[in-house]
Design a protein around this nucleic acid. Structure first.
Lengths: 246, 246
DNA sequence: CCAAAAGTGTTCGCAATACACCCATGT
DNA sequence: ACATGGGTGTATTGCGAACACTTTTGG
């Protein structure tokens, strides 16, 4: 969201270096917005918050808010996510998607927002934060991208960019197991890929590819419980190399 | 640079919606910085400007400046580039690299900058803009990345990110011929790739790859003048499909 | 024994690589 | 004739897709 920050009186720090004209620039509001994504039940979903005040009152929007005076952008994103949803992330796991600064993007004032993408491990239900977020919900990305669920501001475009970025990262960096619990089966990992890429993947080829990739995942001694109608029990795997204690 | 914008008096637009507290956010300065890259003499170079005032007076920095009140971010980048270097670009050819908002990145005040990457067609020498840029020069990217040439602010990191992005774009989108004149030989295109990727490419394979790629380049009837020591004259090519008039 | 799911083997086709070779020009 | 650079042919290799097959469990 682009609002909802406690009042803060602040002026530019003194002293200013000589030759600097304080009227030489336009003050902007700078916010961060977070696209928190998770895969649940083979569906890619993202966390939205229902706005409690104008503009776009009652509409769904991304969690976010104003950057504080002495706060890094990524830190602000992690803080806002925690405040509005109760989800804690490390700033390292946040990926900057881009910045959005159309002069008309917020009808109230000139706001530039920096969007961050984040990944959560299988949230089953949307957590409610302690902040002023009226309502939070996990919605399928497909609902947003099909325009069945309109978003406030230019958040639709931010979501598109975040999903594009996620798909690109999926193939290069091994971001997929960030969607999985600490121990997971190859099937779970494959279903994450399938949900994000919107494709069906050959289970055999995926198995080889993912187990063959050096240092990507390592097997444990444990097995996953078998399914209801039988089937060979799957090996449980962990992210990374065995020696890399995490 | 993160400075040098004419004074502008501006207040937030009226009326403000009820419930909005104008003191609820911290005002930031928002700037754009441009990483203008070009390939000249088989070397990837970028345009720098020597700062004429503190901080970092006398240091090399990226061209850039404050975003104006009613200006889009990409528009601001194109304007600053034009003002400081005389080079005109379309906003569509600018690629947003990222935003940089460390609280200490500018000692004067809180500044968030949005960096854009741009590509120029074979600048032989650095153009001098009409603005207050004291001095402009094309320097090899290698000079910057080897720390032989230090930059002001966090511009070194911005350059690294822009170059990384350029390399990634080179293989996916066909940005390479943005470095070439309207008509070019396959050799020129290959030397652009080699300069950016820092590799040697097989000329034969490159020829096939680039000519075989559907809709990428189209041949003209013209031939390039042959070299000093002879050699078969090369076909001149244009970007895109033949039917796509540009 | 049969169904279901995990995991392996086998084949095929494409695309990138390496490099030999032919073509067109200047000296 | 020879050097130089443009452009094509061809063999090899590696990798991903398709899919048959084996293994291990529950009913």
């Amino acid at each position: 969201m682009d609002t909802d920050c406690p009042p803060a009186e602040r002026r530019w720090p003194e002293p200013r270096p000589a030759g600097y004209d304080p009227g030489a620039f336009t003050p902007f509001a700078v916010t961060v917005d977070i696209v928190l994504m998770t895969v649940v039940q083979r569906q890619l979903k993202l966390l939205l918050i229902r706005r409690g005040r104008p503009p776009y009152e009652g509409a769904w929007a991304l969690p976010g808010g104003f950057v504080k005076p002495d706060e890094d952008l990524a830190t602000a994103a992690a803080r806002e996510l925690l405040e509005e949803t109760g989800i804690s992330t490390t700033t390292g796991s946040l990926r900057q998607i881009g910045s959005y600064g159309d002069p008309a993007r917020d009808p109230r004032m000139r706001v530039v927002t920096v969007a961050y993408g984040a990944v959560a491990v299988r949230l089953e239900e949307a957590p409610r934060g302690g902040s002023d977020a009226a309502e939070a919900e996990l919605v399928p990305v497909a609902e947003v991208q099909s325009d069945r669920l309109p978003l406030a501001f230019d958040h639709r475009r931010i979501v598109d960019d975040a999903v594009d970025r996620l798909r690109a990262d999926l193939e290069t960096t091994g971001v997929a197991h960030s969607f999985c619990p600490p121990e997971f089966t190859v099937r779970e990992l494959r279903e994450v890929h399938e949900a994000i890429l919107q494709t069906e993947l050959d289970s055999g080829n995926f198995q080889r590819k993912v187990t063959g990739r050096e240092g990507y995942i390592t097997p444990t001694e444990r097995r996953a419980p078998t399914g209801e109608r039988g089937g060979r029990p799957a090996t449980l795997w962990r992210a990374g190399r065995p020696e890399d204690a995490e």
